[in-house]
Design a protein around this nucleic acid. Structure first.
Lengths: 254, 254
DNA sequence: AAAACTGTTCCGTTCTCAAGAACGGGGGTT
DNA sequence: AACCCCCGTTCTTGAGAACGGAACAGTTTT
C-alpha cells in the first residue's frame, strides 16, 4: 500500500536523515553526525549550513540543534485541521472536569499522532507531547480509531507496522486485536489496561466523520490507582464518550 | 552577521521552497506548485513523493499538504527548551488569573518566535500560534527582548529585517525605537499600544539569563477596551513582571 | 610544544537531479 | 461515444551539483 517513490530525491533523504538523527540526539556536532551517518564531514557541514540559513537548525557553540522553524510548520498544519480547532476547547474542558490528562490524537500513515494534550489539576506527567507518533494497537486512542477503519486497512496497518509488545499487557495477536476492536465498536469506548505503560490506564472514544470512519480520538489517562472500579468501567467512559459526541457534532456543522 | 552558506545544498533548498510554498497555500497540486516555483512538474513530483515517504507531506485527492511530522520535530525541540519547561505552568496560571490571552516567546535569528499561548476565560481570539514568527520591533514581546540585547545586536537586527509598519502606531524609526527600549529597561515592562494589530494592547516583561541577556518574554494581550487606565499602566505591568521574575528564578535554579 | 580534536574550505570525480516529452486516467463538453 | 483538456506519473538524457578526500585554521589536551 505504502508505495515507495519511484524516483526518490536522495539529497533530500540525506537532509532528512540528518534532521532525524539530530532529533534523537538533541544536540550534535559535525564530526559526530558524519560518523553516525557514514557521510563526509563536508557533506554534513554543507547540509547543516543550508538548513541553518532557513532556520531549520540552530548552532550553539559548535553544536547543532533542531530550530523552532519546525514549530512554525507543525503549528500551522495543526491549526488548519478542523478537528484541532473544534476539539481543543472541549479537550481543555474535559481536563478541568476530570482533573486528569486528556489527549487528542489523529492517525496518519497507520500511526497514532498526538495533536494536543491538556493537563487537569491532578494530571500525571507523561512522556507524550504534541506530534508524538505511536503504534495504533497499543493505546486506547489508537484502538478507538482502528475500530472505525475498514478491516482491510487495519490488516494493512498490522502488516506494515507489526504489533510490538510495549508492556506485558499489549495485544500482540492479530485475531485478539480484531476481537477487541469488535468489543470497542459495541461499547463505543476503548480501554488501555497498562498496555503501553505500566501503571497507566486510559479510556478513549473515537471521533468519526459522517461516513462513520474515524478521523481522531480523545482519551483520558490516569494512574491505575485512580482509575478503577466504576470510575474506570462506567463513569469515565460515559464522560469521554459524550465529549467525543459533542466534538463530532461540531465537526459536521461547519 | 548572518553568514550565507559557502556551499549551499541546492536540492535541499528546493525541497524547503516546496515546503514553504505548501505552508502558505495550505493545499496544492503538483502542477500548481511547479508553476509557482518555476520547476519542472517531474521535479516537484519527485520531491513531494520523497517527502511523503517520510511523512513530511500528505496527499489527499491529488492535493498535497504539510504532514504532522513537523509537529513531531517541532514539539520535540520545544520540549527540550528549559524555558518552555519552566514557563509553561506559570503562563497557564497567569492566563487563569488575568482571564486574558497570555503568550510565551523567545527569539531566534532576530525574529520573535511564539512558543506557547494560554487562553484565559475572556481571552481574545488571535492569529497567533506556537511557532509563529514576527518582527521584534512591533510587539510588546519583541521590544521586551530587544531591550535586553546588546545595542550592536539590535542594530544588526534592524539592518537585516527593517522596521515594517504593521499599523499606524508601529515604531518605524531607528532612534525612536532605541529611546523606547531605554524606557523599557527603566520600567521593566514593555507596552504594545496597537502597534501590531488595531484594537489590541499588550503588556510584556522580558526573561533574562544570569548575564542579563534576554532569552524570552511573556505578555498579556487584550482588547484596548479592557486594558486601559490603571489596569494597563500599573496593575497588569506588576502582575506580568512578577510572573516573569518567578520564571527567571526557576530558570537559574535547575 | 605538539598532538588531537574541532569545524571549515576547496577541488575533482561521479552520481543524480532537473527538465521535457510522452503516457494514461478522469471529467467535462460537444 | 468520441473528443479534448488537465491532472499526476513515468522515463530518458545531458548539465550540473553533491559527495568524499585532503588540507587548513582554531582550540583544547597531553
Amino acid at each position: 500500500m505504502e508505495q515507495e517513490p519511484k524516483y526518490p530525491v536522495r539529497t533530500t533523504e540525506t537532509t532528512l536523515a540528518i534532521l532525524d538523527t539530530l532529533k534523537e540526539a538533541n544536540e550534535m556536532g559535525v564530526t559526530e553526525l558524519s560518523n553516525q551517518l557514514n557521510l563526509g564531514k563536508s557533506t554534513v557541514h554543507n547540509h547543516l549550513s543550508t538548513l541553518r540559513k532557513h532556520d531549520f537548525v540552530v548552532k550553539e557553540d559548535e553544536q547543532y540543534r533542531l530550530g523552532l522553524r519546525f514549530l512554525e510548520l507543525g503549528g500551522h498544519s495543526r491549526n488548519q485541521m478542523k478537528l484541532y480547532e473544534v476539539a481543543e476547547p472541549e479537550v481543555r474542558a474535559l481536563a478541568e472536569e476530570t482533573e486528569e490528562m486528556v489527549n487528542l490524537a489523529t492517525h496518519e500513515h497507520g500511526k497514532c499522532v498526538y495533536l494536543y494534550r491538556a493537563k487537569g489539576a491532578q494530571a500525571v506527567e507523561l512522556d507524550t507531547y504534541a506530534g508524538l507518533r505511536t503504534g495504533l494497537h497499543s493505546t486506547a486512542l489508537g484502538k478507538a480509531m482502528l475500530a472505525h477503519l475498514p478491516e482491510s486497512r487495519v490488516d494493512d496497518i498490522i502488516e506494515t507496522n507489526g504489533l510490538s509488545a510495549e508492556t506485558q499487557h499489549t495485544i500482540t495477536d492479530r485475531d485478539e486485536l480484531h476481537e477487541e476492536l469488535e468489543t470497542i465498536r459495541e461499547r463505543g469506548v476503548a480501554f488501555d489496561r497498562e498496555e503501553r505503560l505500566n501503571g497507566l490506564r486510559c479510556v478513549a472514544a473515537p471521533i468519526t466523520d459522517t461516513d462513520g470512519r474515524s478521523i481522531g480520538a480523545i482519551s483520558v489517562a490516569a494512574p491505575t490507582g485512580r482509575l478503577k472500579g466504576d470510575r474506570f468501567s462506567t463513569d469515565m467512559p460515559d464522560t469521554v464518550h459524550s465529549t467525543a459526541n459533542v466534538i463530532e457534532l461540531s465537526m459536521t456543522h461547519m
